[in-house]
Amino acid sequence: MTAAVLTAGCSHDSPTSTPTPPATRPVPVGTPSGTPSRAGLADISLFAGHWIGHGNWLTINRDGSFEVGARVYKDCAQVPQPCDTMSGGMITDGYHASGTLTGVNGTTATSQVADTNDPNWLPTGALTMTLDVATDSISTGRINYCGPKAPSHVCY
């Protein structure tokens, strides 16, 4: 539900023109026509990429796998994990989770969080991601992740 990145810039693979809305029927990820296939995925191209927010990040790969991370805002030198590590002026976020998109229906993707290092932060199980094409952002409920064209007020 949350994620963090520590870089000022970001990139995600979004089209340069206004995208055509995806099909409105549910299509399982990994099945471009609804029929299981190893050849490709449902069209997750609008979701695929690197998305950032204030102290969080979300990366969705073209194969439907995703990783999410967030700052804990606690130094590992002072508290047990999960915590952020500091080295050479770089901060490495302490919250991490991963999973797989399981379906796409228009601008909504369903997913399963398979692994997390803190279930109080992001539990395993179902997670819905909603794409807002107008603001170039993805919401997972209470957290927004922004693409490069997102207005600054959306994620910060």
Rank of each mutant, 00 (worst) to 15 (best):
A109D: 10
T85C: 05
I91P: 02
I60V: 15
N120I: 00
D136N: 15
D43H: 04
V104A: 11
L46F: 05
T59I: 15
V27M: 02
T108F: 04
G103Y: 08
V27H: 00
D132W: 11
I52N: 12
R25A: 04
H96G: 08
V154S: 13
P82C: 02
K149P: 14
A48P: 03
G55K: 06
G9A: 13
G34Q: 08
G49Y: 02
I143H: 11
A48Y: 00
C155K: 14
N105A: 04
V154N: 14
C76L: 00
S17V: 03
W57F: 07
I143E: 13
R142S: 13
S33D: 08
T128A: 10
K149C: 14
Y156P: 12
T92Y: 01
R62L: 11
V133I: 14
H50C: 05
P80T: 01
M86E: 10
T16N: 12
G69V: 00
P28W: 02
T130F: 05
G141P: 10
G64R: 15
I60F: 11
R25E: 03
G147C: 15
V29H: 09
Y145C: 15
T110A: 13
S139D: 06
L131I: 06
G49N: 08
A48Q: 06
D93L: 01
L46T: 05
T128I: 06
Y145T: 13
D136G: 11
A8T: 03
Q81N: 00
P123S: 07
L58F: 07
D132T: 15
M86H: 08
D63N: 11
N120D: 03
A126V: 04
Y95W: 07
L131D: 08
Q78R: 12
A97H: 04
A109K: 09
G141H: 09
C146A: 13
P36R: 00
A114P: 04
P19K: 07
C83E: 02
L101H: 09
F47Q: 10
L131V: 06
R62A: 14
T92F: 01
T102P: 10
S17F: 03
L127R: 02
A77V: 05
H12T: 12
A150N: 13
V133Y: 08
S152C: 12
I52Q: 15
T102K: 12
S14A: 13
Q78M: 12
V79I: 05
L127Q: 09
T18D: 15
P19T: 03
D63P: 09
G99K: 11
S14N: 10
